[in-house]
Design a protein around this nucleic acid. Structure first.
Length: 271
DNA sequence: CGGACAACCTGGCGGC
DNA sequence: TGCCGCCAGGTTGTCC
């Protein structure tokens, strides 16, 4: 569900509520949601630590604690929100982990499909060390992108989804970026010419920035921590737009399967 | 290296 | 209404 813009929106919304708070108690309702840890040792280690920073890397939400890093990956249906202990929220039926904070509030992690994960490590690299560059950072340059593409024979869309190649892009934003670049998602990465690479580089950054500006895209499960929807779904050019006219050339948007993922594109102007 | 596919899970929706 | 099959924004591991 959530890709970089959705995760970034969640982080920004949560920051005021959790920054500087100490975690006083942990309640694990579905222990498989904890990565490499049992509820008791997890709680023992986390309790008492303070949230000193709240950041994002790729699709990981990072709580920088006093001694450790606590990370949350929302996967498909994860939701994070803050509520007071007596307050009922619609998402509570899928709550898997509850973090009690020292101001009396609770940070709740809800996740209907149970794919989400909570990680705990001494160093952030143990969690995010294998991720590729952050697409909106200065370290992600056209030169780096070009080097990466020309070295690979992979189908370009699959490569965009590879988190070790580039961090944070998921199925929606990959399709949207390829539409922007006028590149057929089935192309092999090393067949793109310099102009196409430049357009794709701009496309990736542009759609992610727009996604953040619109506070993410709500298709089904994604919600902002206040329970409301994002707006970016109203800006889609191809994702879920099957049969609608392409906003660039008027041809109908079509869908095909690529690497087990539904892929939306304009077969007329994406070459 | 790259592609195909199964797993991990549950809920929502369209069709009959 | 009810049941059934299909689909889903992600990631990992295995096999060829």
């Amino acid at each position: 569900m959530p890709e970089l813009p959705e995760v970034e929106t969640v982080v920004r919304a949560l920051r005021p509520s959790v920054l500087g708070r100490a975690i006083t108690e942990i309640n694990v309702l579905w222990s498989k949601e904890l990565h490499n840890s049992d509820p008791q040792s997890f709680a023992d280690r986390v309790t008492g630590q303070q949230v000193q920073q709240l950041t994002r890397r790729g699709k990981y939400i990072l709580f920088m604690l006093t001694h450790d890093v606590l990370a949350v990956h929302l996967k498909m249906t994860g939701r994070l929100y803050v509520a007071s202990p007596l307050e009922d929220r619609p998402d509570d039926r899928w709550v898997r982990v509850i973090f009690s904070l020292d101001d009396g509030q609770q940070l709740r992690f809800s996740d209907s499909r149970k794919f989400g994960r909570v990680y705990l490590a001494a160093e952030v690299d143990e969690i995010t060390g294998k991720l590729g560059p952050e697409p909106l950072s200065n370290e992600f340059t056209l030169e780096i992108f070009t080097k990466g593409l020309t070295a690979r024979q992979r189908v370009i869309k699959s490569l965009l989804l590879d988190q070790t190649f580039l961090a944070g892009v998921g199925n929606i934003y990959a399709d949207e970026a390829l539409w922007y670049a006028q590149v057929d998602p089935r192309r092999k990465a090393n067949t793109l010419d310099p102009m196409e690479i430049k357009r794709l580089y701009e496309g990736v950054r542009s759609v992610l920035q727009d996604g953040i500006a619109h506070e993410g895209a709500t298709i089904s499960w994604y919600r902002k921590p206040d329970g409301t929807s994002g707006d970016y779904q109203n800006k889609f050019r191809v994702y879920g737009q099957i049969g609608k006219p392409c906003q660039r050339c008027g041809s109908p948007i079509t869908k095909l399967w690529l690497g087990q993922r539904g892929t939306h594109f304009c077969s007329n102007c994406q070459k």
